[in-house]
Amino acid sequence: MSLEQKIMGDMKAAMLAKDEKALRALRAIKAGIINAKTAEGAGGVISEEEEQKLLLKLVKQRRDSLEIFTQQNRPELAQKEQEEIEVIEKFLPKQLDPEELKAALRAIIEQTGAKSPADMGKVMGMATKQLAGKADGKAISATVKELLAG
């Protein structure tokens, strides 16, 4: 079952349950899928990898907004963003916890032979490919800096 089919099924369930929170997030995902499918060169089809990237992008947008709304003391808007993040994350693979992320990054650092923070680019290139969908880019970057600095 494709992501789009899962979203459509969940949208129907959310409509019947009158779950506005879920419906808002599901509509955003559906809009993102439609935009990706109709983008130039997409040919009306998106791969599973592209679906994961789309979901990660949607979560990142909402986290950025959540941060801004929290800084501006807008709890009602921050709450909406948090609710949407929770719904969207249900469609992503399980995220690595900090210890699993460190272990995976240590292995990548060993593979690349990185020794200092100057080698961060090599590590990040490989890490973002291998850990796509499993960890946030900011978390990967911060952990790589920490491991290479130590």
Rank of each mutant, 00 (worst) to 15 (best):
D10K: 03
I29S: 00
G121T: 09
I109G: 07
K145T: 02
G150A: 06
K90L: 10
E4W: 01
S141M: 09
D64W: 11
N35F: 01
A142E: 15
I88C: 01
A17C: 11
A17Q: 15
I7R: 00
L16Q: 15
K80W: 13
Q95P: 08
L92A: 14
A28K: 11
A42L: 03
S141G: 03
Q71Y: 04
K80P: 05
I7H: 05
E81C: 03
Q111L: 10
Q5R: 01
R74Y: 13
G41T: 03
A107K: 15
A13Y: 10
Q72S: 14
E86R: 08
Q82C: 03
L92C: 12
I68E: 02
M120F: 13
P98T: 12
K60F: 07
M126V: 13
K12V: 06
K12P: 02
F91A: 13
A39W: 02
V87C: 10
A31S: 09
L148N: 09
L131N: 00
N35D: 06
K53W: 07
E89Y: 09
D136A: 02
A25I: 04
Q5I: 01
A17G: 14
E67R: 13
T128H: 13
A104F: 07
L16G: 15
L66D: 09
A39N: 06
K37R: 10
L148P: 07
L147C: 08
Q5A: 10
I140T: 01
G133Q: 02
